[in-house]
């Protein structure tokens, strides 16, 4: 698009931060690092980027996610996870997440349990480079017994009880967007969920997207920008990169695949088989860069 300055037009020809998922992630993956997973439940989960991590030679990962779904399941199936920090992991109306459940029940993976607000506050603290945040919380909750990173805060003002939540260290955040500009501006016309906070909280941010946009569309849809370019380190084109989950408003979830996952789990399928279903949508979509 021609504009008065020409600067946007000139830059649109450049690749910007566009790369492929291997180059975006592999050089930065290490044993024991913390991966932040964007999206919510079964919507806008970065499954194409998850697959890249699932095949990487790393171990002992911590997963930090607000509402985990098949992303957590696929990484559990890969055997690379030591710890999950979340307020919930499940398959929404498809029921409980079977591999997450097994991992908790076997004690094979540590589960650091949060409430939604405490985890949100902890992420906000990390985004603001603060060591902790203070939030109200039901003082009777057993989260105070099981999560050492939620503790009563000193009463500095007033008498109401408050709780301090420690900011996590998130090494890499992986997110999926409806569209992204090569410079890193990411768009969604659906719910942003906690992606903007997670992006600012993490040291490195990789965004996959259904499609690329140019300067003209960025200008036209600037109100839909939910991730600013300065917060994004790498951009990966991955149409269908959230499958078998949805990427609203682009596409609904893949119901047959979800049904296969639930029924295979109930029939006693192996982790490898479940992982294959969880990542199956990517075989027909995939990384196009």
């Amino acid at each position: 698009m021609a504009d008065d300055t020409g600067s946007l037009t000139n830059r649109s020809a450049a690749l910007g931060k566009l790369t492929d998922s291997a180059n975006a992630l592999q050089p930065f993956l290490r044993d024991g690092i913390c991966i932040g997973l964007g999206g919510f439940g079964l919507d806008r989960k970065p499954m194409a980027l998850v697959r890249e991590i699932a095949t990487a030679p790393v171990r002992g990962l911590t997963l930090e996610t607000f509402a985990g779904g098949l992303d957590v399941e696929a990484l559990l199936a890969s055997g690379k996870v030591a710890r999950i920090s979340a307020c919930h992991v499940g398959l929404d109306h498809f029921g409980l997440a079977p591999l997450f459940r097994t991992a908790r029940q076997s004690g094979g993976v540590e589960f650091e349990e949060w409430s939604e607000w405490t985890q949100l506050a902890a992420w906000r603290a990390a985004a603001e480079k603060a060591p902790y945040a203070v939030v109200p919380l039901d003082p009777a909750t057993d989260l105070l017994k099981v999560n050492p990173h939620i503790i009563p805060a000193p009463t500095l003002f007033g008498t109401a009880p408050a709780f301090a939540v420690r900011a996590p260290t998130i090494d890499i955040a992986i997110l999926h967007a409806e569209a992204v500009h090569p410079d890193g501006w990411a768009l969604t016309s659906g719910d942003t969920y906690l992606d903007p906070i997670l992006a600012r909280a993490a040291k490195r941010v990789v965004v996959s997207a259904e499609r690329l946009i140019d300067d003209a569309e960025l200008e036209r849809r600037h109100r839909d920008v939910h991730l600013i370019a300065s917060a994004v380190d790498a951009v990966v084109l991955a149409p269908g990169g959230a499958l078998p989950g949805s990427c609203l408003p682009n596409h609904m979830l893949d119901f047959p695949a979800m049904r296969r996952y639930v029924e295979a789990s109930a029939a006693g399928a192996s982790s490898a088989d479940l992982s294959a279903i969880a990542l199956s949508g990517l075989d027909r979509a995939g990384d196009e860069s």
Binding site: A86, H88, G90, E113, S115, E116, L137
Partner: peptide, 12 residues
């Protein structure tokens, strides 16, 4: 013995 999904926003 039986794991559910997690506490979500109940205490909030």
């Amino acid at each position: 013995k039986v794991a559910f999904g997690g506490t979500r926003g109940l205490p909030d």
